[in-house]
Amino acid sequence: MQRIMNDPDNIVDEMLAGFIKAHDNIVESTANSRVVKAKNILPDKVGVITGGGSGHKPAFIGYVGKNMCDAAAVGEIFSSPTAAAFLDAAKAVDQGKGVACLYGNYSGDNMNVKMALKMAKKQGITIKTVVANDDVASAPKGQEEKRRGVAGEILMWKVGAAKAAQGASLDEVIAAAQKAIDATKSIGIGLSPCTLPTVGHSNFDIKHGTMEVGIGHHGEPGMKVCPLGTAKEIAKKMVDIVLSDYPFKKDDEVVILVSGLGATPVMELYVLYNEIEKLIGHAGLKVHKAYVGNYFTSLEMMGATFTMMKLDKELKELIDVPAYSMGLKQE
């Protein structure tokens, strides 16, 4: 393992310490060392929180900031935060108007959020949730509730947080975030595995010259393994899978998010995006906005995710709201 670290058991805490030092204009620590909170949260608004395992930088704390999430609960690498961390994140940002907890569909996160909700209720805090399930590869159509949340979570946060920043009620924020994730589909491809620093070796394999289509953010096996194609071929596979998952019509406007999984050079993400954009255009869709970069990674996995959100008037307005966080900055 070629890693920059001290004791692997402390890697999450040391990462957090560095992150807070580097971005002290955006975030601050809280009494719970596993909860990071935005600085200067707008008064009198619904709180927006998220949380998830570590190893996905910039997710999750990288999306805490102005007009983005107000706080994030931080877990071990690829492992859900505790119920206490979710609860403390909610408490840190609750202004009496309730808290929207927007997170991804994983069994650990579901359990810990469920327990946090129970505890919050006892303490008089209202938390409502939206569970991201944008990964089309993780369960067939018709079983969307089983699908995992991947990079599409970023667009859900963007929309939900923008809605909250506009002064919307908790139910309105939840409805907007739900609409956002329902309009969002993702697919990932993996070119090489990743290694948990505490484990020391990768626990799955992607053979040289192959790629795994539909791989999960933690290396969950995908739909199929095929020979590694050109960027054009990869783009075609990804776009076909996503477009076949939901109805769209000519001239629909979309947001595209192409994220690296950690070790793929950013240059290649632009090569991929160039191909994806052409295919989207051929399908008659219009790209309203594109995000390309390492937005939601999986340690040092090689590969990428392609995420598409179909816009309506409200989603378009909310996606265009300025935001300032470590992982997403837009004017």
Partner: peptide, 12 residues
């Protein structure tokens, strides 16, 4: 396990 570890096994 519940308060300090999380994941799935914390609550379970």
């Amino acid at each position: 396990l519940m308060n300090d570890i999380g994941g799935s096994m914390g609550p379970i």
